[in-house]
Design a protein around this nucleic acid. Sequence first.
DNA 1: AACGTTTGTGGTATCGTTTTCATATCTTAT
DNA 2: ATAAGATATGAAAACGATACCACAAACGTT
Lengths: 337, 337
Amino acid sequence: MMNISEFAQIAGVSKSAVSRYFNDGYLSEDKRERIEAAIAQTGYAPNIAARAVRTRVTKLVGVILPKLSSESCARVTEGISEVLNREGYKILLINTANDAHQEIESLELLRQNRVDGIILLATVFTDLHKSVLSKVRVPIVLVGQQLKGFNCICHNDEEVAYTLTRRMLQNGAKHPALIGVLQEDRAAGAARRAGFEKALEEFGMTCDPRMMETAQFTMDSGYDCMRRIVSRRQIPDAVFCATDDIAAGAMLCLRENGLRVPEDVMVCGVGDSKIARILYTPLTTARLHHKTAGIEAANMLLSAIRSKSVVPRSLQLGYDVIERQSTQQTELKYETV
Amino acid sequence: MMNISEFAQIAGVSKSAVSRYFNDGYLSEDKRERIEAAIAQTGYAPNIAARAVRTRVTKLVGVILPKLSSESCARVTEGISEVLNREGYKILLINTANDAHQEIESLELLRQNRVDGIILLATVFTDLHKSVLSKVRVPIVLVGQQLKGFNCICHNDEEVAYTLTRRMLQNGAKHPALIGVLQEDRAAGAARRAGFEKALEEFGMTCDPRMMETAQFTMDSGYDCMRRIVSRRQIPDAVFCATDDIAAGAMLCLRENGLRVPEDVMVCGVGDSKIARILYTPLTTARLHHKTAGIEAANMLLSAIRSKSVVPRSLQLGYDVIERQSTQQTELKYETV
DNA sequence: AACGTTTGTGGTATCGTTTTCATATCTTAT
DNA sequence: ATAAGATATGAAAACGATACCACAAACGTT
């Protein structure tokens, strides 16, 4: 494609005039018209890379995420994209496929590309993460996890889990079980488990370790975990699942074992994903406003880029409990316990 | 961040040597070591934008898609990302939110950014699309739609619809209905409808227009369409839905109206999305290999970029029919017709 | 009439790379 | 011993843009 000099010659103006046309002003009407005519004729458009070299601004934001096909990630990214595109920023997308090693490498890649900012949706933070993150000089926003000293958009995972679990206990559950995710995930893993345990404590219960399982973020894994629980002596009468997908898998397993939801076992998840609504028994869950999280993350990043402020901010988004059939109190309840 | 000259000085070598270190060879062991030491010390990494200006290669691929939070789009993108990242290409992501206008604008944006290639997942192609696409000078791969003169990865939508519909007819359906998507979408809209009609024709039937509805790509829209059909005199005994989401909505509506699936009404969808498996009645559908489509699209693009070949290629991927409960033949069937 | 301000102009230095070029040294085959 | 090739080197010229500069014209104000 043509460069600015050649184009300027065709338009019959100076390079400076062309540059001014695409940037500031101070351009006579005459030249403006000639440039516009020349654009219509040649289709010239300035080379963004060259501009980036000169201005040291790429208008590029790196977005690192663990799994694009996860509904929550996709929603967050949609929110990010909405804001960033509107503001003239472009997204460099990196899907790490849940590979921590690739997550670190990606940060290096983004540094090479001189992105103006980074939004990171990660599940687990190792010390290596923290050290690499600290070395990156551009603004960063973390989504879904809270880390001291960094900009964060997060949810009150503990409270979400606490509220949902309490709801099941209030509805009469006596033998609750947990299907969580790995503790290293401080938000979806540790915090949600803590909320679960807090609710139990409040009701004077403790959870039998045999009633606790750790799943991946998939339906299949939820299914497996539930099967392991069921295969033991005692059947729980309530299961708190760290995500809706896990809950869906768990319910599938319960159904296969002739256990009814909610009559025999209550189930709830977190996330209000599409599947929650249309499960065999509609699932009680908590809506987490993923898209809003993306929008807020992008806004926070932009304001950090623009103000060059160094004070890290942390924003906690609210949630809504969506109570559906899967945790409803039933007459049968007390008979089956 | 430091530039190559400054870094070269610190390392005690020439600029050329540094450049050669990051590119080809012809570098003495001595210098190589000094450069590596200096990198460890300073964290220098070459500026990609400057390289792009000089080499005229950005290693950037633009990916335009209508809706990231759609499971199929996300899967395709995951496949694209897998290949492209491995091959050292980066993804410039553009989510158009189903806005045709923005789709066109995005192509202009990608042109400005001098991407090395473009992968476009679009639903509808207008003449404007075609004209803008023809003007773009870089290789393009279309996913999900077939367009003469362009590289395409697509599915045999007509055959998929035909096969699924025929299955329902073989299982005894006498009054089939269609919930499709807009005809302008030649793949998911026109082709799937054509397949549906072809199957009907083969069984000597034609479809009453009152048995045909056009939905958006959402569950809610599927629900609304089904309600419109149900509200009319005749109730169908089979519904072919253009997507699983639409089918899920339709089933929700049927259930609310006291109609059982499959006993009263058979239902099938297309896509084998996560929800199909866990619906109230597990949904018969066709698996479309979205991730593979993404992988193939990326491979096709890379080979186009590398060979600079101009001959457009078109690849049609296979599909698997997943027969679940929602279309099973039942004893009751013949009584209700 | 003298002055300051706004508007408009084009030449040139600069951004951070890679590539070319001219040249030097070291092998190896003749 | 010499030529030919491979290996190694740094200076300088691109690549395609913007920022800075000095200067000119037009304008309003004292």
